[in-house]
Design a protein around this nucleic acid. Structure first.
Lengths: 220, 220
DNA sequence: GGATAATTGCGTACTGCATACGCTATTCTT
DNA sequence: AAGAATAGCGTATGCAGTACGCAATTATCC
């Protein structure tokens, strides 16, 4: 019953997802179209629909591929939080096109469930009450995603806000001090800038670490 | 020099944005197309392009409209954080279509700058060092956005993860306990569920409050 | 006051994208 | 050998965004 009738498949879902992720990595998510993926795979575009039901399906499969298996978490509770967060950041830095997704939905794909499960295990040892754990996992996920987005946009030309804060020449005409006093002060003090000298990622990570520490001290 | 040549404009950018936001509110963001907006305004679609340069422009204007002016923040430092966060949540609950946006970019629109400026003022009184303030503002923004997304998706049929956690009948076949031990335990204890009994929004808000409290105690 | 320049609304047309439908060839089942 | 199921794919449809240019309208300039 495991035997399949019909011609032997020339293309597989794996190859399709490979090609799609490859395009996303090299040319960005908008260039991942059914046609371009078919070209990359080397078949007609309608051939893809034997393996995916629609474009959304392909995106979900791509997300799962980009996520990969959850990391091993066999250290201290506090260490595990760090490792988890760092691993998540690595995912987003390896596949920045993930950041272009609306992220409105949690894909519920196998690897994603694996990550969530691992994260739940970590929080179990952090003093987070049961009914808050799942929500905290999503908060941590979102935080890492945010850090990745900030880091990514501050490198490219996409960084509108950082560009504004970076140079007073840019900012002065657009940020009248009487209307935006704090922003203007921020620019003047040069505190909004120096994206090279400071790593925003550590800042975001410390944010969740602080929040979790409150749980731990409350318990101990 | 303020006098304009040519026929008096029958449609204005304001009316276009009004129509677009109206459609987004009643039918969702995907239904906001150049054609549908033109229909709502009552003109041909190409007429819109005299007032917007492209669809992205329209979206940016819509975001600014949905944001509205920043709230008054004239309470205690801790109160102000709460008010700011709640106001932001209100924005997202009034215009949930904002959550469907990729959010990859900070629009740098007038109202957005206003909100950022107000938030910077709040953090100034919270003991957050200068160079971390802007980043913290973005973290808070993202947190409120997350809370709104969770709250919104847990109400609609979109809630895939919540639906999975809600009923053991749904979860058992998809969550083998040997592969996802913590998730399975979560379902069994019924802690993942009860979205009616618990308000995730307060949880997310407390998350940032805890993080900020660490700054304040460090100072005092 | 007539020519001119600027500006608006809009009709036409083109491109790219996702995908429904059905045909053909291939392979297993009976 | 006949039939059923399956893979690849060619054709065609509908929708979305938008470049381009024309005609009408209004202010400006000689």
């Amino acid at each position: 019953m495991g035997v399949r009738r019909g011609p032997v498949p020339k293309i597989s879902l794996d190859r399709i997802v490979d090609a799609a992720v490859g395009i996303a990595r090299s040319e960005g998510l908008p260039r991942v179209t059914v046609s371009s993926v078919a070209d990359e795979v080397g078949c007609a575009k309608m051939a893809l629909y034997r393996h995916i039901s629609n474009r959304g399906d392909l995106l979900a499969a791509m997300i799962d591929r980009a996520l990969g298996p959850a990391p091993r978490l066999d250290g201290t509770e506090q260490e595990n939080v760090i490792v988890l967060w760092d691993s998540l950041l690595e995912v987003y830095e390896r596949d920045p096109w993930l950041l272009a997704l609306p992220a409105e939905t949690n894909a519920l794909t196998p690897h994603n469930l694996e990550w969530i499960d691992a994260a739940l295990g970590v929080l179990e040892g952090c003093g987070v009450p049961r009914h808050e754990r799942l929500e905290m996992v999503l908060l941590i996920t979102e935080n890492a995603r945010f850090a990745a987005r900030r880091h990514h946009s501050s490198r490219g030309t996409t960084s509108d806000l950082d560009a504004l804060m970076a140079s007073a020449a840019e900012a002065s005409p657009r940020l009248p001090a009487e209307r935006f006093p704090h922003l203007a002060a921020q620019v003047e003090s040069g505190s909004g800038t120096s994206p090279r000298h400071h790593d925003w990622r550590a800042l975001a990570r410390d944010h969740v670490v602080r929040s979790l520490a409150a749980y731990d001290t409350g318990r101990a």
